[in-house]
Design a protein around this nucleic acid. Structure first.
Lengths: 210, 210
DNA sequence: ATCTGTGAAGCACTTCACAGCG
DNA sequence: CGCTGTGAAGTGCTTCACAGAT
């Protein structure tokens, strides 16, 4: 069956909430309660889950541990995912230092920069390699995900090369709308776009200028 | 007229592409070319713009400078927006150092932390204030946007307090689904969710484990 | 001849509403 | 009796297709 992409995007949200509930020792949860916690309608949650199976018990709700395990299986969260970071500028180094990836099974195992000043240096236990050697390094040490944190001008070419290396998922921090073949998944992390999408609604009620 | 939210989210994308074209001296662009650059159908672009007016010339396309100016006006990108950052941990400090906000008119003018170790210290020319004094500080120095970079446990309470201070837009880096009144706009920046939404598609074709 | 602006058609996602099970 | 699972109805967004402007 073909699952709507929006559904896939909500599953990690459910998984995270369930992990929180499990940590508190909660055993059962209803779609109503989960929905309230996540700002999602209960019907939406039930419909989303119904694409994958029947995980609940009528009259009771969902077993927290069991549903979490199911979602982890569906999303592939039970594995370790190998990632490469390209670009070790300010932003790239912040990504390298981000503590949020590891606990969720995402590990940066290779990192690249094109500045000779940085190549060979070590950050967080990783030696920065030369972007020129990307293909060679990734051939010996394949990764599942590419993280792009290079300037806008070089981002598309870096993405092309990652795709050429067989990388199927890319997290793009560069402010460009990248082109990738249909088989490759790419998501943009772009705080400026997020802000600009909100200012539209603020125009009328802007805080007094100082 | 009520504009679909997805339309608003695409406008900043158009504005960015137009700014790029303007920088190269381009005077006219068609919906076809813009769409090709951004992976958006030409019809979508024309429809989106038609919510706000008739900016193009039939047979020719859109004047780059004029359309960009229109979009800036619609989105409120011609102003300076005052922001506050709450949380100066690793992530918060990276946000403070991010060079992408300033050129787009977004300026962090107040920053807070609850750790006495950090309060009073100066980063990037900003003195870190005590989160306990949030209300007092923002009363004297109101902001348009709040950026939340505190741990998950305290994020909701910080968001509540920002809302109480009249902040109408929030950029949330904490891994929680926050609750805000309908009048407040909030967007999540969450690379882990983004990754988890892609691994679903990778499960089948994962790179060989090392 | 070309490209916009736009009603109308089409598609995708969300919500409803209720049968059925625990 | 409560809560799931799910067809069917409803909603909102996208794409089509073409009249009309230059």
């Amino acid at each position: 069956m073909e699952i709507p992409p929006v559904v896939i995007d909500r599953l990690p949200l459910y998984a995270r909430a369930l992990a929180g509930l499990e940590a508190t020792g909660r055993e059962v949860v209803s779609s109503q309660e989960l929905g309230h916690q996540l700002n999602v309608t209960p019907a939406q949650i039930r419909k989303d889950l119904s694409y994958f199976g029947r995980f609940g018990k009528q009259g009771r709700g969902y077993n927290v541990r069991k549903l979490l395990e199911e979602l982890r299986g569906i999303l592939g969260l039970n594995r370790q995912w190998r990632m490469t970071l390209v670009g070790t500028g300010r932003l790239g180094r912040a990504i390298l230092g981000y503590e949020g990836f590891g606990p969720q099974g995402f590990r940066i195992v290779e990192t690249f920069d094109s500045d000779p000043e940085w190549v060979g240096k070590e950050i967080n236990g990783l030696t920065i390699k030369n972007t020129a050697d990307l293909e060679e390094v990734l051939r010996a040490s394949p990764v599942d995900v590419g993280i792009v944190a290079v300037p806008a001008e070089t981002a598309q070419s870096v993405i092309d090369r990652l795709v050429e290396c067989g990388v199927q998922a890319i997290l793009n921090y560069a402010p460009i709308a990248a082109h990738v073949p249909p088989s490759v998944h790419i998501k943009r992390i772009d705080p400026v776009l997020a802000l600009q999408g909100m200012t539209y609604y603020l125009k009328a009620a802007a805080a007094p200028r100082k």
